[in-house]
């Protein structure tokens, strides 16, 4: 990313898409940041064995 892009990112209002832990989005909302929260958890709830089975059963 060029220096100009970094500069423009910091100078414009943040628009955030938060994926996963909702508390992260809540903290930003409290600071007045515009947030779209995406309710998501890893496949199988993060259980590696279930995730492995799911990948084989596709």
């Amino acid at each position: 990313m060029s220096e100009n892009h970094v500069k423009s990112l910091l100078e414009t209002p943040l628009k955030v898409v938060n994926i996963g832990l909702e508390s992260f989005s809540e903290a930003l909302v409290e600071q007045g940041v515009e947030v779209v929260h995406l309710d998501w958890i890893p496949p199988g709830g993060g259980d590696p064995k279930l995730a492995d089975l799911l990948s084989k059963l596709e």
Binding site: I41, P43, G44, G45, L50, L54, L57, E58
Partner: peptide
């Protein structure tokens, strides 16, 4: 059941 477990 695959979609239920995958999506939670």
């Amino acid at each position: 059941i695959r979609l239920v477990v995958e999506t939670g």
